[in-house]
Computed example of a mutant assay.
Amino acid sequence: MSKLSPIRFIINPTSGPRNKVDVAARINLLLDQTKYKPDIVYTTHAGHAPELAREAAEAGYEVVVAVGGDGTMNEVAKGLLHSDTALGILPRGSGNGLARHLQIPLQLDKAILALNNGVKSRIDSGSINGHPFFTTAGIGFDAYISSVFAGNKKRGLQTYVELILKEIRKYKHLPVTVTINGQSISTDCFVMAFANAAQYGNNAYIAPLADIRDGLLDVCLIRQLDFVKALNLSYCMLAKQLANADSAEYFKTTNVEIETEEPMMFHADGEFIGKAKQFEVQTLPLSLHVILPST
C-alpha cells in the first residue's frame, strides 16, 4: 500500500457565506483518502495562518490548503514561500482573486474534488515593503478602500461597490516620484496597482494582460480620476480590457521604487497594511508552488 501524502487544511472560521456549511465534514467526505491524509486546523487570531503553514512545510507536508478568502490565502501562502510545499485553495471569501485567476472552482465541493487530481505548478509572487502578495498590491485609493472595508461589518461585493461610490469623490490624488524601468516619473497618483495576477477579485481585471509566471509585475498607474474616466475604467475592468490611455497607464517591470510627499496607504491582496512615504515593490519569480485543477 502506498504511503498517504499529508495535507493540511487551514480554516478561517470567520470566512465564508452566512449559510455556514460544515467545511471539515465536506473535506472528510469528498477528499480522496486513499491518496491524502488530512489534517484540519483552525486559525484563532491574525497571523496564525502563516505559523500553521510554515509548521506544515517544515514537517514535510505535500500540500497546505487555505480555506477562506484572499486574506487567508495570503497568510497561508506567506508561510509556504520558497518551500516545496504547495498551496491549495478552497475559496470562501467575497473576492477570491487568486482562485479565480488559477481557475479553481468557487463551489466548495467542486474545489475539494479538484484537489484529488490536482497538478503541482509554480507561480510568481510579489513584495511591497517586505509584505508578500500573490494577486495585487497597491497604493492610493484602492488601499484606502481596503482600510475602510476592513472596519465594515458587512462584507461582499455590494458593500465594496457601495464604499467605492461613497468615497471616490472625497479621495484626492497625491504627488509621487516613481522609478520604473530606469526612468524617473514625477506625477499625481490616484491609484498605483501592482498586479501579479490579472484581477483584484470578483472578476474585476485591473491588469488583464498580467501573467502569473512571467517574472514581471504589471503596473497600472491612474494619475487622476474624474467621473468619465471612472466609468471607462470600471467598464474595462469588468470587460477584461485595458483602459483608455487617458484613464490609465500600464508598465511591465521587475521592481518599482516610489517616494511620496505625504504618507500614502498601501495594501497587499486587499488587506490594508498601513502608510508609508517610501515604497519598494518587486517580483519574486516562481517562488510559490500551487495546486491547479487538472484539465
Score class of each variant (00 low, 15 high):
residue 217 L to K: 01
residue 204 A to L: 13
residue 229 K to R: 11
residue 131 H to E: 13
residue 168 I to G: 06
residue 142 D to I: 00
residue 192 M to K: 03
residue 124 D to V: 09
residue 133 F to N: 06
residue 164 I to T: 12
residue 162 E to S: 15
residue 227 F to L: 14
residue 172 K to D: 09
residue 232 N to Y: 11
residue 233 L to I: 12
residue 209 L to P: 00
residue 204 A to T: 11
residue 148 V to C: 08
residue 169 R to V: 14
residue 188 D to V: 08
residue 138 G to S: 06
residue 207 A to D: 01
residue 153 K to Q: 14
residue 207 A to M: 05
residue 126 G to L: 08
residue 130 G to M: 08
residue 215 G to T: 10
residue 222 I to L: 04
residue 197 A to W: 10
residue 165 L to I: 11
residue 130 G to V: 07
residue 176 V to W: 07
residue 232 N to W: 12
residue 183 Q to E: 15
residue 228 V to I: 14
residue 220 C to Q: 02
residue 228 V to L: 13
residue 160 Y to H: 08
residue 177 T to H: 04
residue 176 V to K: 00
residue 180 I to V: 13
residue 169 R to Y: 15
residue 190 F to D: 01
residue 225 L to P: 03
residue 219 V to C: 10
residue 170 K to N: 15
residue 195 A to K: 07
residue 199 Q to F: 02
residue 134 F to W: 11
residue 135 T to F: 14
residue 219 V to T: 07
residue 164 I to Y: 02
residue 208 P to V: 09
residue 190 F to M: 09
residue 227 F to Y: 14
residue 162 E to G: 10
residue 226 D to C: 06
residue 146 S to C: 12
residue 154 K to W: 09
residue 226 D to F: 06
residue 167 E to T: 03
residue 143 A to Y: 01
residue 128 I to C: 06
residue 148 V to L: 11
residue 164 I to Q: 03
residue 148 V to R: 11
residue 158 Q to A: 15
residue 177 T to Q: 15
residue 215 G to Y: 04
residue 143 A to H: 00
residue 196 N to F: 06
residue 230 A to I: 05
residue 130 G to T: 14
residue 152 N to I: 10
residue 146 S to R: 02
residue 178 V to T: 13
residue 194 F to Y: 06
residue 149 F to W: 05
residue 220 C to M: 13
residue 132 P to T: 12
residue 211 D to T: 13
residue 230 A to E: 03
residue 165 L to Q: 12
residue 222 I to P: 01
residue 228 V to G: 12
residue 204 A to G: 07
residue 171 Y to T: 01
residue 133 F to W: 02
residue 142 D to Y: 04
residue 176 V to A: 12
residue 214 D to F: 08
residue 183 Q to G: 00
residue 130 G to D: 04
residue 182 G to C: 04
residue 224 Q to S: 13
residue 210 A to V: 09
residue 214 D to K: 02
residue 160 Y to C: 03
residue 170 K to T: 15
residue 127 S to F: 09
residue 200 Y to R: 09
residue 217 L to H: 03
residue 218 D to H: 08
residue 184 S to K: 13
residue 177 T to C: 10
residue 211 D to K: 13
residue 187 T to M: 03
residue 180 I to H: 08
residue 230 A to D: 05
residue 172 K to M: 12
residue 177 T to W: 11
residue 132 P to E: 07
residue 216 L to K: 11
residue 125 S to M: 03
residue 204 A to W: 06
residue 144 Y to R: 02
